[in-house]
Design a protein around this nucleic acid. Sequence first.
DNA 1: GTTAGATGTATCGGACCGATATATCGAGGT
DNA 2: ACCTCGATATATCGGTCCGATACATCTAAC
Lengths: 181, 181
Amino acid sequence: MIDMAILGLLKGRAMHGYELKKELTAQLGQFWQVSYGSLYPAVRRLEKNGMVERCFPKEDIARRKNIYRITPAGEQLFTRQLCERSPVLDDARFGVRFAFFRYMTATDRVDLLERRRAYLLEMAADLKEKLRSYKEKIDDYTYRLMEHRVDTTRADIEWIDRLLAEEKLNLSSNLKGKPAS
Amino acid sequence: MIDMAILGLLKGRAMHGYELKKELTAQLGQFWQVSYGSLYPAVRRLEKNGMVERCFPKEDIARRKNIYRITPAGEQLFTRQLCERSPVLDDARFGVRFAFFRYMTATDRVDLLERRRAYLLEMAADLKEKLRSYKEKIDDYTYRLMEHRVDTTRADIEWIDRLLAEEKLNLSSNLKGKPAS
DNA sequence: GTTAGATGTATCGGACCGATATATCGAGGT
DNA sequence: ACCTCGATATATCGGTCCGATACATCTAAC
């Protein structure tokens, strides 16, 4: 996952480690934390595998900054990881992908949103089932927390639905724009 | 964190590894995942440090189940970890503690809720600040996600507020129950 | 001029994760 | 009686991740 995030940022522009960390925290910090202990080894790993490469712009040549740029192989890997169909789409896995939504095709976007929707629905169903069957076994605090999670999950699903409606509208209007049969 | 969760469950009753994993998933799985690769080493570590000990009930003596029971030292450690004042109180760290709320004193409960509230407020403030200042720099999808996070964070805060009101009511009614000055 | 805080890279030990191996148990079918 | 399948149960491995820490520079303020 950290690989995808790094590649996604470098797809935007070349950066060095510290910059990557700052952008990662700013853009994805709400649902996913990255430490230097993960970041620096990850960048070196990507470099070793030819997914990113160092570049030395004139103005920074004196400073000891390690500026990295994405390679074609890296672009390919990024796209593959972004659209990979994993059954688990928790907050972090969905959030990171959503941050790079603009790099996906409209159909892949709809697909991802629908898989996230299914994941949330399953969560909600599990929670409701537990609320029903465990009602006497769990303590009051746990019950309240589960109740609240059901509500927030519902809100998440409604948000997804609004996005899905818009994406599908775009899809069909693009189709209409093309010559009729 | 995994230590606290294991100790908290064993405080309820003695269990073996597989049972711990099932309960962990059932009770905390919404906001925190545990794998066997973490669980079994963690239990052994706790045993090595004298926080839990094996017990061999008659009915299970034939089966190869490793049933563990919490020790007095373990109880102490659990209580210490549960009330530890860490500045970071994200979903996982708060959720795990909330699952053991019944083991905390009323004042510690109020304290934890207030620290979680402060954490969420800071999150919301950060998000709003980013929405304001980055408005032109971030793409539309990221904007929508941040907007939604602001809403869900607000809902979380309101939920905390309801709990806080109840806890404080309990606290003051307990005081009233005691002899006046 | 020196102090403080942001910038920048790096590494360590221990903890963690996903995948996988192995084996037993009980329920169900044929 | 046999066979299969899923749940129960323990364990480990390589690679990855994390928190803490170290260290150096640059800039702005006082």
